[in-house]
């Protein structure tokens, strides 16, 4: 049995549940890719499903504490945050390495003429 304890965020308890018909699963392609990466790393044995859910829960709580509305619209930012932190905790890549790779992508976009495929150099 797994009956939950009530320990929710007080503000959220006052909000209506907002449903939108026909809403796409992903607002932008990166959202799907970030979630797929999290699944792939679990399948590769880098972390367990429990570690993933814990990291995601921590990311959500941290965002709430920082004023995030946690209304579902920022969910994939929490996914991305959890993924980056787990990758670092598991020593797969450091924050510096992630930042350097991100900067390399920015550089690639800024130096690729419009219309050409953007690739890391």
């Amino acid at each position: 049995m797994n009956q939950p304890e009530a320990k929710p965020c007080a503000d959220a308890a006052l909000q209506p549940i907002r449903r939108v018909e026909g809403e796409p699963l992903f607002a932008e392609p990166w959202e799907a890719q970030a979630l797929a990466l999290a699944v792939a790393l679990q399948q590769a044995g880098c972390f367990t499903a429990v570690e993933w859910a814990d990291a995601l829960g921590v990311a959500i709580k941290r965002a709430q504490a920082g004023g995030d509305p946690d209304d579902g619209s920022s969910y994939y930012l929490h996914v991305l945050d959890a993924l980056e932190r787990l990758v670092q905790e598991k020593k797969i890549a450091s924050a510096d390495l992630l930042a350097a790779k991100k900067a390399a992508w920015v550089d690639a976009y800024e130096h690729t003429p419009h219309g050409k495929p953007v690739e890391l150099r």
Partner: peptide, 28 residues
């Protein structure tokens, strides 16, 4: 700047960074 490809959003870039790093490491 002008003329180059539009730079994606910050989360899109972070995702690309992760994907390319994890691909290089053979994890995905």
């Amino acid at each position: 700047a002008h003329g180059h490809s539009d730079v994606p959003s910050d989360p899109a870039l972070r995702t690309k960074a992760l994907e390319s790093l994890l691909t290089e490491k053979g994890l995905v």
